[in-house]
Amino acid sequence: MLNKISLFIFMTFSLCQLGIAQQSHVLIDRWNEYIKTKTTDEAKAFIEPANFGSIYGFVQPGSELVNNMKPLSEEIYGHSGRIFLKIYDFKIWIAFKQHNENWMMTMDENELLEHLTSNWIKTQVGSVTYVSSSPLSKETLKEAELFTLENDRLSKEFGIKLNDFKYYYAKLGEEAENIVGEVDKGAGKARFRAIKAVETVNHVHELAHIYAYEFGNGNPFIDEGVATCFGNKNMTKKAKKAQAVLNLIENNGYEKYLNPPTFVEANMQRKDVYALAQLTLKYWKDKYGMAKIKSLITIQKNSEIDILKYIEDHFEKREITNSALREILKNNIERATIK
């Protein structure tokens, strides 16, 4: 009898292990199938429709960026999961959600993050729910209160009110890498009403992303331009930075970086594309107003639209923008040099 029970336990354990083994590479297998796609219609079967423009732009099959990505491992929690990839010296992860029998890439990481932080502490500050592995200090809570003021400012700027969203506060080290996918203090990322940041509770750049995502997401040059325009100080104020951005414009103009893989790769190579994006979006906002900017971030979620053509049809020709940006940068360099 004992031998039969032992055999039953062994067989059950073996079958469980087999089941795990069969499921252990489902996301990596899904990724490997995705990168074989040749058309946008084929790619749409692998990405949530609402997120298609943004994700496809970042990991477009056949692009040099994707060709350098190597899948490392995966994790699955119920109907949510993530795949870890290595690109150059960076380790990134992409979230997945299960729809019926298929796993789809998504920017909605909320279910995944809730699982990863199920035992963390929740602290309400204004309309923001902070989620942290240990209590926030008094100094940190004061900084969090300043964040509520920034939230009010952006609410007026974008003309919408966010009822609530979660802010994941991760500590430096393994916790930061696991939750945020970053290891530097102050680093952060934002996805639909969820901010992830490393040891900071006042990340206005990511807050601007949250507001922009309410309208649409797609092109990283536009998205980062909006986030830096509303969430960062002037990045081209100093002569050295202004000159670096001027050099980017001289090399095929701002429009070169409207190509998503080109923008992402340039950023990974430490080129000043964020500063260029900030300058461009601020110039358009000052000249055409906030309503036009909102229309731009709304339209970009449609991946079928040629974003450069849309800009030239609804804002101005690329030559006019590039000429204006050169003038701004040269003035910045001159002022900084005189000082």
Rank of each mutant, 00 (worst) to 15 (best):
I35W: 10
G188N: 02
A227Y: 08
I47A: 09
A244M: 08
A45Y: 10
K142N: 07
L281Y: 01
Q300F: 00
E327Q: 04
L296I: 00
S118P: 05
N202Q: 11
I5E: 15
T321S: 06
G231K: 07
D29E: 12
K189D: 10
D313I: 05
N51H: 14
P261I: 05
C16G: 06
N322L: 02
I20C: 12
F58H: 06
I293P: 00
K240F: 10
K161I: 15
N163Y: 13
R335I: 04
Y168P: 04
M290E: 08
K271F: 03
T140R: 15
I297F: 00
F58M: 09
I87C: 05
A95Q: 01
Q278L: 00
K238I: 03
V183E: 10
A187T: 04
T129H: 04
E334F: 08
F52V: 01
I83N: 03
P71G: 11
Q22H: 11
T262N: 02
A212D: 07
N119T: 15
E143S: 13
E42W: 06
Q300N: 01
K317F: 03
M235N: 09
E182G: 03
Y257Q: 02
L281A: 05
I320M: 03
K4N: 12
V273T: 05
L65T: 06
L276N: 02
V245Q: 13
T228V: 04
K237Q: 11
M104T: 02
A187R: 13
I9Y: 12
I5S: 12
I9E: 13
W120H: 10
F13P: 07
F58Q: 07
G62V: 09
I305E: 00
F158I: 15
M11E: 12
Y88G: 01
Y213V: 14
P71T: 11
Y169K: 11
V131T: 13
V128M: 12
K138A: 14
F215D: 10
D223T: 05
G188K: 03
E74G: 02
I20M: 13
K70L: 12
T321V: 09
A277P: 00
K44P: 00
A50H: 07
M107V: 02
D223W: 03
E177G: 02
H25L: 05
N251T: 10
Y56H: 02
Q269V: 01
Y211T: 09
L146A: 08
V183W: 07
T280Y: 03
K238E: 07
